[in-house]
């Protein structure tokens, strides 16, 4: 049981972590930094304006960066019959999806939070704002990972699923964005306002739903 868990997590991480042999590039990380770098050029060097809008830009950049690996999350394993072989071994699709959510989060979120530091310097954010952004990302990115894996599973059997996946993530991720980034506009309670707690709550709901929605999606592809 434990062996199965760690074997699956290890494979998923090797597949998704940047720099691994079969791992993907640092693209989401660089993409995130590129947005943070381009934004000041676009709006001009107005420090006050940048400071007010920078936190929101980091949130949008994080959401977009979490989109990049969606096409590699589920579809290749369905095409290669990996889920079928796991099912034959009595491993529930829900468990496989839950592990993949964890691996997806580990592969993009910690790096993104580290990248927030140079990004905040580029955007001229002050200390309290940076703290709110980092706390908000910690609360919100697990939800983004869960929603991302769910959508990847739902669109895996479709032609042109990747483009659809990008579009589907936007409305589903909007609540996390509203509360996570919204906490910047209303920094009550020392910058850890109710917005972050609400973003965390939405994350928990998404995490709870993802394995079952993703598992059902994989079974429906199999049974079609």
């Amino acid at each position: 049981m434990t062996r199965i868990f760690f074997t699956l997590l290890r494979r998923d991480l090797a597949m998704l972590l940047p720099g691994g042999r079969s791992g993907q590039s640092l693209l989401p990380f660089l993409f995130f930094l590129a947005i943070a770098m381009l934004f000041p050029f676009a709006v001009g060097p107005d420090a006050e304006l940048l400071g007010r809008t920078g936190g929101g830009v980091i949130w949008v950049a994080a959401l977009l960066a979490s989109l990049l690996p969606l096409d590699r999350l589920i579809a290749p394993d369905i095409e290669q019959g990996v889920f079928d072989q796991l099912a034959l071994r009595g491993i529930a699709d829900e468990a496989v999806i839950a592990i993949r959510v964890a691996a997806h989060w580990l592969s993009f979120a910690p790096l993104l939070i580290v990248a927030t530091l140079p990004a905040s310097a580029l955007l001229g954010l002050d200390g309290p704002t940076l703290k709110t952004v980092v706390l908000g990302l910690l609360a919100g990115t697990p939800g983004l990972a869960a929603i991302g894996v769910t959508i990847a599973a739902l669109t895996a059997g479709l032609r042109g699923g990747t483009a659809l996946a990008g579009l589907l993530l936007v409305p589903l991720a909007t609540p996390i964005l509203i509360f996570g980034a919204g906490s910047l506009a209303r920094p009550d309670d020392n910058g850890t306002g109710g917005g972050i707690l609400l973003a965390a709550a939405i994350s928990l709901v998404a995490l709870a739903i993802a394995p079952f929605a993703g598992g059902a999606a994989i079974r429906s592809v199999r049974d079609s």
């Binding site: 074997t7 042999r21 290669q80 019959g81 079928d84």
Partner: peptide
């Protein structure tokens, strides 16, 4: 228990064969 062989190998295309088979070897013990 049941084993199933089909056209799809369930092996990761990017990995060397030894590592790709190694995943299933670890899973099955």
């Amino acid at each position: 228990s049941l084993g199933y062989l089909e056209d799809r190998t369930a092996l990761d295309g990017d990995l060397p064969l030894a590592e790709a088979l190694g995943f299933w070897a670890r899973l099955d013990g």
